[in-house]
Design a protein around this nucleic acid. Sequence first.
DNA 1: CGGTATCCGTTCTGATACTG
DNA 2: CAGTATCAGAACGGATACCG
Lengths: 141, 141
Amino acid sequence: MEDGTSKSVGSPEGTLGECIEWDLRNGCEVRQILDRVADKWSLLTIALLERQTLRFSELQRQIDGVSQRMLTVTLRQLERDGLVTRKVYPVVPPRVEYSLTDLGCTLLSTIQSLVAWTEEHQAEIAAARAEYDARAAEPVA
Amino acid sequence: MEDGTSKSVGSPEGTLGECIEWDLRNGCEVRQILDRVADKWSLLTIALLERQTLRFSELQRQIDGVSQRMLTVTLRQLERDGLVTRKVYPVVPPRVEYSLTDLGCTLLSTIQSLVAWTEEHQAEIAAARAEYDARAAEPVA
DNA sequence: CGGTATCCGTTCTGATACTG
DNA sequence: CAGTATCAGAACGGATACCG
């Protein structure tokens, strides 16, 4: 996990296509970051932290389906990437609150778009799948 | 895989937070779709097909890093979900071209945002990681 | 409560070999 | 060229047990 020293950045401007090519040609860490933010749990976690601070248990309850381990791992990654802040209150029982950093907030709108898109086109995708599967079942006939 | 019959969709309007909650409470297939479109290879594949049709080998060459197997799998999923069109020319040697469907195009802008965000904040993330790792190395001191 | 450590089965991936 | 099939290794994810 060496990283790319943060200075050789300077991504080229231009169309997305160009950026992608640049990205790919460099086989750089962009893909790795993309994988992180595009992660299922990361996406949902960030979305849930929109404008609100949540405790570990609250997150776990709301995401429901995520195991304690996965939530912990996800939060650690997000914290490491500077997207989420972890605040520990030295009380007993322990209280740990998570919230988005400014950097994390900049991701919000994009994630919103992605989630919104998914919900908007849910039916279309389901239909496409059904059609595809049906076609696969009865070949050319 | 019951469908979402296209009419029972009506995701609630309002803030993203509300949508997410709705999403989670339904434990619906949204997450599954999200996982698909948020996939590393899917993301890059769709981005590369922006306004252009590409052959299998062209995609493989440009994405570089993807194995033939993964590219095939990815393209099949995207095709099944109705995001990509697969056109086979019955010639020899075989020629297969891929392009985005209208549905796939609607995802373009969102994906562009995500990729753009990643490239824009690459440095910040790298810095955050470095700081986090450094802090982990020398505890409280 | 909020983790961490560990075991362990499942999934994902890449490399390789073979086909139309 | 564009796959499909197979196999082994790596990564993922859940369940459990235990700590501060």
